[in-house]
């Protein structure tokens, strides 16, 4: 599966990374080289293999339903590029 410039632009947009036309052009051969290389995995017969889920045998633990956190707004907002009236602020969104 070799990808073209349009695909590169779609991936960049899905990734929310702005790229110029030139950058898109540069990405095409680069990504194709890497993808071409990883596609050798296709050679491996995995018809009877389950995908790995937990690398080391381990069970998902269930937490008790108690309030142990929160009430730390100052720490939550401490690094905000823009905070106002206790909210994070972002450019206006039209839904």
């Amino acid at each position: 599966m070799s990808i073209d410039k349009q695909t590169v632009k779609k991936i960049a947009s899905l990734s929310r990374i702005a790229i110029t036309d030139a950058e898109a052009d540069a990405f095409v051969p680069e990504l194709n080289q890497i993808l071409g290389w990883v596609e050798q995995l296709g050679e491996v017969d995995c018809s009877k293999v389950e995908p790995m889920t937990a690398v080391i045998a381990n069970k998902l633990r269930l937490r008790d339903d108690v309030v142990t956190d929160g009430e730390i707004r100052d720490r939550i907002l401490a690094n905000a590029p823009m905070a106002d009236h206790g909210f994070f602020a972002v450019p206006k969104v039209i839904e």
Binding site: M1, V38, L41, G42, V44, C46, V49, E50, P51, M52, V55
Partner: peptide
């Protein structure tokens, strides 16, 4: 084709 296959190969490697 990519992710699931890779996780299966990971099982084989393990």
């Amino acid at each position: 084709a990519y992710y699931t296959q890779a996780q299966k190969v990971r099982t084989l490697i393990s």
